[in-house]
Design a protein around this nucleic acid. Structure first.
Lengths: 211, 211
DNA sequence: CAACAGACTGCACGCATGTACAGCCCGTGT
DNA sequence: ACACGGGCTGTACATGCGTGCAGTCTGTTG
């Protein structure tokens, strides 16, 4: 077993890695034949190891989720390491793109990935709130959920609008300093004034509720 | 020609409407056979009228974009009509879901739809800024783009995370008053404080740029 | 009345896909 | 020495897809 692959990974892991890559690059419509070619194995070996394609995808899902647990997305607690955690290697880019692909697939799996991201965000925000970074008014559960959806969704739009040819390039292209700064400023300052027109607007919505 | 369909639309329009519905419900993987069944015509008639499936989709794209031009998404100028413009009929729900599906498809078409949405948002924000609703610091082009991506993306996440069985139900389920209020409050107040830790965070990002 | 145009259909072809199956190769244990 | 089990492959099959084609029906035109 260990003599066969002098170079790198076992074929089983190589298939998983190839599937991860192809799913991230082409979406989950990627064919088993494409994956097999990427992993340099036959199609039959994939089914031999993983049975069905759905099962292979689920294995990839679990693998990505497990890797995500170790990777810290936002290093709010240690500001100086923010750059490292985002662009350290191409692997994290594939993980991110795979997650975005899962959201684009739009189903129960999308919900699963978003819930995972949400709980991750929640703990980060708890820590940030304790550090005095977050306003108390923003800590309501619905607000946190909304803000997480907006942030993740903004990233999703960025991806869907301009998907990279190679999923390993995405984070370098998406997480520019300019983008981060604008995002932070926007979320610190807000963009609505508290003019009477705004209050009128809110009143109209509340009135609309009572119909 | 006009005697044949006593009931409703011409078959050509019925096909387009069925395609719109099926694409919105099932995504663009929806088969011509499904669309044909929905329109109560044969598959061959679809190709007879529209040639290829890609062409049918492009016709649907153009149709949706044209209808969007007439529909006002956000009635900031007239606060009292906000409820009407969002939930008036099931048609607008299909249009919205179709647009979200186009974004989920992740390609040039996604870019096209988002650009359309962006220009629409821009004019609304110009008007809102003139009315004193928007802070000047938020009117920078990159900020507007970012805010549009976040808002649209939040909606996209809401859809992808919990897609409705019938696309006509989406706006009723997604645009609740509670959600709108939270969104507005979040965008008015922001959620980051301006503590020194925050400034330190921003400084770290700027430093990261100069590597 | 005849001819024509166009809406409309049934059928079949080629293609790509996921999956099942029979069998090969080879390191390992008895 | 020999059987065995698992990694690994080639082939074949059923299915669903988009598309092309021959042909029918019907209202309109000369």
């Amino acid at each position: 077993m260990r003599t066969a692959e002098a170079e790198d990974l076992t074929a089983r892991a190589r298939i998983r890695e190839a599937a991860l890559f192809c799913f991230a690059r082409d979406g989950f419509g990627a064919s088993l034949r494409t994956i097999a070619q990427e992993a340099k194995v036959s199609v039959a070996l994939i089914t031999h190891h993983y049975g069905t394609k759905d099962n292979l995808r689920q294995v990839c899902d679990d693998h990505v989720l497990a890797r995500y647990r170790d990777m810290k997305l936002l290093a709010v607690a240690q500001p100086s390491s923010v750059g490292d955690s985002l662009t350290d290697n191409a692997d994290s880019s594939i993980l991110t793109v795979y997650m975005l692909r899962s959201l684009l697939a739009a189903g129960p799996t999308a919900q699963r990935f978003f819930d995972h991201f949400l709980t991750q965000i929640e703990t980060v925000m708890q820590a940030s709130f304790a550090a005095g970074l977050i306003k108390e008014s923003a800590m309501a559960p619905e607000k946190i959920r909304l803000m997480a959806a907006d942030t993740m969704g903004g990233l999703l739009i960025t991806f869907a609008t301009n998907p990279p040819d190679d999923p390993r390039d995405f984070v370098d292209q998406a997480f520019t300093a300019e983008r981060l700064l604008n995002q932070l400023e926007l979320y610190r300052d807000g963009f609505f004034t508290d003019s009477p027109v705004f209050d009128q607007y809110i009143a109209a919505i509340k009135e609309w509720t009572h119909d």
